[in-house]
Design a protein around this nucleic acid. Sequence first.
DNA 1: CGGTAAAACTGAACGGGTTCAATTTTTATA
DNA 2: TATAAAAATTGAACCCGTTCAGTTTTACCG
Lengths: 206, 206
Amino acid sequence: MSGLRAQKKADKNRRILEAATTLFRKVGYDAARIEDIAEMAGVSVGTFYNYYKNKGDMLMATVSMEVEEVLAAGDELIGRELDNVGAALSELIGKYYDHSLTYLSKEMWRTAMSLSIGQPETPFSKRYTALDHRLSKQVCDLFRSLQTRGIVRKDVDCDATGELVFNNVNMMFIEFVKDEEMDIDGLKAEVARQNAPVAMLVSQVA
Amino acid sequence: MSGLRAQKKADKNRRILEAATTLFRKVGYDAARIEDIAEMAGVSVGTFYNYYKNKGDMLMATVSMEVEEVLAAGDELIGRELDNVGAALSELIGKYYDHSLTYLSKEMWRTAMSLSIGQPETPFSKRYTALDHRLSKQVCDLFRSLQTRGIVRKDVDCDATGELVFNNVNMMFIEFVKDEEMDIDGLKAEVARQNAPVAMLVSQVA
DNA sequence: CGGTAAAACTGAACGGGTTCAATTTTTATA
DNA sequence: TATAAAAATTGAACCCGTTCAGTTTTACCG
């Protein structure tokens, strides 16, 4: 592959990605037709399919950019010196939820999750799942960090607890995007309530 | 509405439901075309859409029959005298999982969940969500039952813990149906591991 | 350069879920 | 029973994601 060809390819890839994210945000995922995306990117429909396996893969590209940011924000938090399990969890989970609607609408999240479940063999679905696992691992890391510093009981399995808590966070997020009425504060409050018993029980008594 | 019309309607409804479930089980959800379902039921495509809003609603009708059975099995279990939190949870969750593939394939579950997330405003999606909530409530009821009998600590919020545990059960089930390799025993083992810390911590010390 | 193989591009055609205007069947009324 | 209104049915047409055979562009080599 020589310079010209590679450059054209990179350029088209960027134009298609930009056109898609613009349209997804403007008119929503369903209403954004491949024909429109292709036209806005200045390519044909066929070429679109040369760059992305299908419409869902296109969306996943947007989603993964979003989640990467959330992961980075979470890493920053784990480095800090937190001294309360409930508060630490609320803060990490709060970051997840606060970030979630920055680039993606509820409809886009619904579509992304829907596709990741319905077509698990597509590359971007696998990527989505991988991102989920990294988020899950981050919650586990938080528990381990707190345990190392004596905030969490020594006899608690941090991975098990972290996965449990994260899966609840994730499931509640699904409920959130399914319900157009629900707002982020309500979501946070519910999850904090659900986490409270675990936070209390795993805490090391002074 | 007079007798003849009502009877015809009920009859057609049954024929369509039967044709759809038969085809979904035989060739899978995606491969079963509306045209085929309609033909097998002896009606036209247009009539199919008079009875079901869309193909997804059709599948949800099958799913809800399945979940109703699981709920009944769970109720039976809660009535029994169990004396160990971990074992009680494993048994209830085991019933859920064991039942799950009786009528529905992984593909059908994936599609059902995918639709319930992707099109939350459809009637059957709402029904699916309602079924989920009943399952969640059943786990809460189990915790409460154990608490009443002194197996679970008095200071534990049974609803919060039950919801947390159920949401994990549900999320793990999603992972399960996404992964064609994973079997039910593996799923049960993972969830048991995740539940272990909670089961230990909420247990009343003798 | 000229020729050719490979890569990229194209858009018309295809497939299957969904819609809807026209038709048929049933019910209600006189 | 005749007639009109209402309900139910029909299937051809529509929409949109996806495919693929044919065309154009680029890269490589003598």
